[in-house]
Design a protein around this nucleic acid. Structure first.
Length: 389
DNA sequence: TCTGGGGTCCTAGGACCC
DNA sequence: TCTGGGGTCCTAGGACCC
């Protein structure tokens, strides 16, 4: 029996660590993984962090902070395969693994302690295995609840383990800044600071009703739980049957802002094709179609329309977002990004398409299926709508 | 040449129904 | 004829996570 059954395992600077396996000559240099142009830093090694470089930092600022930083392009195929191997290592320990992303997961090791030892011993064994097999390091937080384990792994970085027993939870959490809590971002942190609530302990000792008045019922209650480490402790294993995604979308920032409707409508077609292609591969369809537009000044709006029936058809999604775009009535407004998202996804098998008499539409679904087959055989570049050629 | 792309969840107002 | 109350759906925006 253990009173700290949850492990949060988080790879250290994952993309950068994986990229550096191919370039051991660069390990002592400041290195970031990221795109070129208008991108942001996806991961920075610990040398680069000494210059103040962090993930999500605009690439231009990273270069300004450290002009000799080495920039490596992301290789998602490799990241995905390393991630899959790491997740397998987790599943050798316990079937209860909730993957949060490519580089982190929660594990419930309750059922493994008899076989493998204490949670701390399991954490150290995992770290050694991942280091030997993948050549990268990770950090582990061990606790009784999801949020405490998450905060603990962050405190363990890099390349360490932090165990927080139930008796230690308040002395561990309460001195921390409120911004350290999992789910408290920049805005909420600033709001809490304005109320004079600087530490987690300050929040913990604020009456629940006061928190709820300031932050709303839900967030107030949530924060109260986070501050006492009484958030959820049950995981939803990622493997095996799980609910389909609730939405799928794609967006793209233009290399340069544009006010050209043709360029924008063509980009919307590419995005609609990408999204519906993924939907068809996953066997889902959705009713609510959302257009996202970000302007040159970074303000962002969304416009959505809910259809009578769920669809996964490229031209239907494209037509919907094009109508939404035209309805904005933009005149010479510079657009930075457009996005397409489909929400309210259901399994396509549950959608019974009402065939209207003489409906011309069913031909488009057939066309999509033909495109999907060709894409599987010849690759994504081989088949695309005529207007994108 | 500041600020990606993939998601989830919550809020709040209005419509509409009972 | 003077103001209810609950529930659901839709839309838009915003916060947060990696």
């Amino acid at each position: 029996m253990t009173d700290t059954p949850l492990l949060h395992v988080d790879m250290d600077a994952f993309y950068a660590s994986v990229a550096l396996r191919e370039r051991p000559d660069l390990v002592d240099q400041p290195v970031v993984v990221g795109g070129s142009g208008r991108g942001v830093v996806l991961a920075a090694n610990y040398v680069a962090r000494r210059y103040g470089i962090r993930s999500a930092l605009p690439m231009t600022r990273a270069r300004r902070l450290c002009p000799h930083v080495v920039v490596l392009a992301p290789d998602y195929d490799t990241f995905t395969s390393v991630s899959a191997s790491v997740m397998e290592t987790f599943r050798d320990v316990t079937p209860v693994v909730e993957a949060m992303s490519l580089d982190e997961a929660f594990l419930d090791v309750r059922g493994a302690t008899r076989r493998l030892g204490s949670p701390r011993e399991i954490a150290e064994r995992l770290r050694a295995t991942i280091h030997d097999e993948q050549g990268i390091t990770c950090s582990v937080g061990v606790a009784a609840s999801v949020s405490v384990a998450k905060v603990a792994s962050r405190r363990a970085k890099p390349d360490g383990v932090v165990v927080v027993s139930p008796a230690e939870v308040t002395s561990f959490l309460h001195p921390l800044d409120v911004g350290e809590l999992y789910g408290v971002g920049e805005k909420t942190q600033a709001l809490l600071h304005r109320f004079g609530l600087l530490t987690v302990g300050d929040v913990a000792h604020t009456p629940l009703q006061t928190l709820q008045r300031a932050l709303g019922d839900h967030l107030g209650r949530h924060l109260h739980h986070l501050a006492w480490g009484t958030d959820r402790s049950d995981l939803s294993p990622t493997a095996g049957p799980h609910e389909p995604e609730r939405s799928m979308g794609a967006d793209e920032t233009f290399a340069r802002d544009t006010d050209d409707r043709d360029v924008i409508v063509r980009e919307l077609l590419r995005l609609a094709a990408r999204v519906t292609g993924r939907m068809r591969a996953a066997g889902v369809a959705g009713r609510t179609i959302t257009l996202k537009v970000r302007f040159a000044d970074f303000t962002t709006i969304t416009r959505s329309r809910t259809m009578p029936e769920a669809t996964d058809v490229t031209v239907e999604v494209h037509r919907a977002v094009t109508h939404l775009y035209d309805a904005l009535g933009l005149q010479r407004v510079r657009v930075r990004l457009v996005g397409v998202r489909v929400e309210g996804l259901v399994l396509r098998a549950t959608v019974h398409h009402q065939l209207a008499l003489g409906e011309p539409e069913h031909g488009w679904a057939d066309a999509d299926r033909a495109v999907d087959r060709a894409t599987r055989r010849f690759g994504a570049k081989a088949v695309r709508p005529a207007s994108l050629v």
